[in-house]
């Protein structure tokens, strides 16, 4: 890695103050993603702003109406939290499936949401910079793309967002608290992510903005399912988070979100509409799953993701409804 200065604020305001200016430091939390990019040499920041000492960004709090999780909560804490497991099962499942125990010990909620794509062209210092690194070309589009997008593939960049927590939080209607200078702004989590037309970034936060927390309204049933080639520690080739309000066996206000299939987590509104207000059955789940994958435009090597994602939608729906797939 290049040599860099390490800045360690202890409170949010000091941190956001440090993020102002011409060439602000890069925010580091657990560092799992950032250090990977720095070790590869595709990012060489002159200074890091290590926010891990800001205790106020830690913790998981539940009230009657919402669950609020600090940006520095680790994936291990989220996966193990009784409150999260009970109130936001999809999130607990997503956090528990991510990476490995060693990574989950350190990786944070904020870092997971704001990590960069795992596109192997973007991540290799041996390639000329691609669109993601300010270059002119997406090498994946006509290259090796079994891990790439099946939605939004007409956009210039076909990388996928790798976060497993993101689709879960989108499905849970979460909001994020973002601090800029002295102002706290809340916005829907969906607004944090960008599509493949914004190539050089994987999130919409400005360099001087700090993700402080995520809040989840309570009262939704949810589930998360992901598919990876290996049984553990593998990047999801596709994932699905679903949630709905369960009213006498009927799914109201459903959310169906796919991950690892597009530049951002994608809600599948047509599928949601097909499910809304109906009693879930395996047959209906199959129809909804088919709808969820309508409009997918796979690349040369990733058509298989459609069938997998379909299965995940079905399984997530049935899991959320307590009707596990199978018999």
């Amino acid at each position: 890695m290049n040599a860099f200065d390490l800045l360690r604020p202890r409170d949010i305001e000091t941190a956001t103050k440090a993020l102002k200016g011409e060439s602000p430091p890069v925010v580091k939390a657990g560092g799992m993603d950032l250090l990977d990019r720095m070790k590869e040499g595709i990012d060489r920041p002159a200074a890091l702003l290590d926010i891990q000492k800001i205790d106020s960004l830690r913790g998981i709090d539940a009230t009657q109406s919402s669950l609020t999780i600090g940006a520095l909560a680790t994936l291990a804490e989220i996966a193990a939290s009784e409150a999260v497991r009970k109130q936001a099962r999809a999130l607990a499942e997503a956090a528990g499936e991510a990476a490995t125990p060693q990574v989950r010990s350190v990786a944070t909620l904020g870092g997971n949401l704001l990590q960069r794509s795992r596109c192997w062209y973007y991540r290799s210092s041996d390639f000329e910079p691609c669109l993601k690194r300010g270059g002119k070309e997406c090498f994946a589009k006509e290259g090796r793309n079994k891990i790439h997008a099946i939605f939004g593939t007409e956009a210039p960049c076909v990388a996928v967002h790798p976060s497993s927590l993101a689709p879960a939080l989108v499905a849970l209607d979460a909001t994020v608290g973002v601090v800029r200078e002295k102002t706290l702004v809340t916005k829907p989590i969906a607004d944090v992510f960008v599509d493949g037309t914004t190539c050089d970034r994987d999130h919409a936060l400005a360099p001087d903005e700090l993700l402080a927390s995520v809040s989840i309204p309570l009262g939704r049933r949810s589930a998360y399912r992901e598919f990876q080639e290996r049984a553990t520690y593998d990047w999801a080739l596709a994932s699905c988070a679903v949630s709905f309000v369960w009213r006498d066996g009927v799914c109201a206000e459903p959310r169906i979100v796919l991950g690892a299939v597009a530049h951002r987590p994608v809600r599948r509104e047509a599928a949601e509409a097909h499910l809304a207000g109906k009693k879930l059955t395996p047959e209906l789940a199959r129809e909804v799953a088919a709808k969820a994958l309508e409009g997918a435009k796979p690349l040369a090597e990733n058509g298989y993701k459609i069938q997998i994602a379909r299965a995940l939608v079905m399984r997530a729906l049935l899991a959320a409804a307590g009707m596990e797939a199978g018999k």
Binding site: W120, Y121, S124, D126, F127, F139, R144
Partner: peptide, 9 residues
Amino acid sequence: MDRRSGRML
């Protein structure tokens, strides 16, 4: 392998 550049991905 990336066929065009010859690089291992």
